[in-house]
Write a protein that binds this DNA or RNA. Structure first.
Lengths: 348, 348
DNA sequence: ATGCCGTATGTTAACGTGCTCATTGTAGTT
DNA sequence: AACTACAATGAGCACGTTAACATACGGCAT
């Protein structure tokens, strides 16, 4: 219980049974002290060229790599950052992961990835516990799924913690693409083009992203004093978009449709056209994510693009700032940008 | 040079400047020896209930987490596996990553991810060097891109190494989806349905996957003694598929088109239809990857599906076997399966 | 009472590295 | 010759954990 299976493989100590080559071994072969080897490894001055050469040859001969354990035991830090994602395969997450990994790489950090998709309810506390026993200097959580103990969660002391989430947290800096603001932006964009009957096809209940996108749309309509019909809810797939698009085709007042992601938008658009509504002449359609580029030929969907790689980079930057002593807790929301293609028309 | 920036942050030793809570601290507070704390942490017997309770309370009060460094310094292993991917965002890679992470999790391992997309040519040696200095018990490389020193690469002694690659390696076990076999399978599938003029729209030059898929197609035609016209080469995007599809529409002999991925197939199909060739009545189309499901409404493309998550799981399994002493070097190729939809018709 | 056994706990040493301080060696200055 | 200045190297310790060994204690058979 609690102990890792890896830990129990036991018998084989070190690298496959044999103790790994240590500095002492190199020192012995090169005929110098361990300290001199250490200096060579860390590229310090004050080592005469001839000695350095001898040490380097010895290292090559023995296949020496400095032990991370020894090094970090001394130094107290690992140069690794723990990242917990709840579903890597979810569309946006890969790009974010990529951004984090590459920003981390630039600062000499590696990223240790942990997934947490145990059927039951998720508690940040459990995830943090698991991560804290790994060689990490801090943690990043990506919680685009509801977690049980979000608000009362306390980060592990000494381990800077950043949460990728639209929900704000009392103790940790949160960062996310502005899933709320993008909807207000789209509604304003459509209003400026004369649309007053703007409907919404949202993502599934239980998705925080879907909820914030929906809320942004609703608030924007309310603020503008426009009529707000009940939004429909799909499951992010193109087919669900098609299905609901068939229903929406009945609504002859609707002049614009804002869809919670591009795949459903694709489906809805197909349904609208199949049922005699022209896009964009009769109905303008806007999606979010810009995920169809390259996937579909002649992609014409007007949509909102987030720079998710940038989101990852920024996330790491905040982590790094905290590592460097920054104490501030903020809620960073990164704006998207509308990509104008050909599915929006202005009303007379 | 060579040293990590993380290492140079220096000043802050341990967890945010303050030395983390150690077993000694817990022992002092609980009024026991460090060894007893260790026993409690590792759930060993021979600790009387009352003592255990006192230690656990002390741990909670101080917020103690065992130090990974100290632990692995003693034990010699980390419970982490190093993974190098050259482009996480490439379609198949996420699912593979997911499979590896989840299989690793089940065995108590975490995955430390490193990306390597420095503009220049890649050498496995450099990647291995970087990974070997991290807290890992072994490594996995995902080399779907050409590397300079593939054949002469020697794994770090004591660190089991698996390569995800279609190319076989003299010293390491390789594993990959059977990018060659899938093409032979498709050609046979089309031949059985009476097709004799089967053309191929391949991925870009320089892509190993594209090369193997192309080679499988070519060999299958040669073996069957069928005419083999020059394949066209796209860049994986739907638009390039469309563009080349326009050219292919001129070829009135062609009765079947095998496309290197689904997105290009999507484009090619659209082009064929736009230029008066019915699919599947005039031309049958087959893709690879099954990547359009959920993305496009009413997906009807017949394609080859690989279980990429399974590929990840199998990869980890091989790593784990080597960790447990298995020495065999193999080349594992995981077959795909044809997903029959509606873009293939039998010829009379 | 003596000796033995088993259980609970403490003590010691070792893992590999890198910092601090000490020592040696060399050259230049007085 | 005696001194300082500096470069190159070595010795020792500390980091946190745990395996192996050592000790203390109570119960039981002799």
């Amino acid at each position: 219980m609690g102990r890792s299976v890896a830990g129990e493989t036991g018998a084989a100590a070190g690298r496959r049974g044999t103790r790994a080559v240590s500095m002492a071994d190199v020192a012995r072969l090169a005929g110098v002290s361990r300290q001199t080897v250490s200096r060579v490894v860390n590229n310090q001055a004050c080592v005469v060229e001839e000695t350095r050469k001898r040490v380097e040859d010895a290292m090559d001969e023995l296949g020496f790599y400095p032990s991370f354990a020894g090094r970090s035991l001394r130094g107290g830090k690992y140069g690794c950052i723990g990242l917990c994602m709840f579903d890597i395969t979810r569309a946006g997450n890969v790009a974010t992961l990529d951004g984090i990994v590459s920003a981390a790489h630039d600062c000499g950090y590696a990223v240790t990835l942990v997934e947490f998709d145990e059927g039951g309810p998720v508690r940040l506390r459990d995830v943090a516990r698991r991560l804290a026993e790994l060689p990490v200097d801090g943690m990043i959580f990506n919680t685009n799924r509801a977690v049980e103990d979000f608000d009362e969660f306390k980060p592990v002391p000494g381990l800077p913690t950043i949460i990728i989430s639209m929900k704000e947290h009392p103790r940790c800096t949160t960062i996310d693409s502005d899933q709320y603001g993008c909807s207000r932006m789209v509604v304003d964009y459509l209003r400026e083009r004369g649309h007053a009957h703007i409907r919404h096809l949202a993502g599934p209940e239980g998705s925080i992203t879907a909820d914030f996108r929906l809320r942004g749309w609703a608030d924007a309509l309310d603020v503008a004093g426009l009529e707000r019909l009940e939004p429909l809810r799909g499951d992010w797939t193109a087919d669900s978009g098609y299905e609901l698009g068939v229903k929406l085709a009945q609504d002859k007042d609707m002049t614009a449709l804002y869809v919670g992601n591009d795949q459903m938008a694709m489906g809805a658009m197909t349904a609208l056209r199949t049922h005699g509504r022209r896009v964009p002449e009769d109905v303008s359609v806007v999606g979010v994510d810009d995920s169809l580029q390259g996937v579909v030929p002649h992609n014409t969907l007007t949509t909102v693009r987030f720079d998710l790689r940038e989101r990852g980079k920024r996330t790491f930057d905040h982590f790094f700032a905290q590592m460097s002593g920054e104490e501030r807790v903020e809620a960073v929301r990164l704006p998207g940008a509308i990509v104008e293609r050909a599915t929006v028309a202005a009303r007379p």
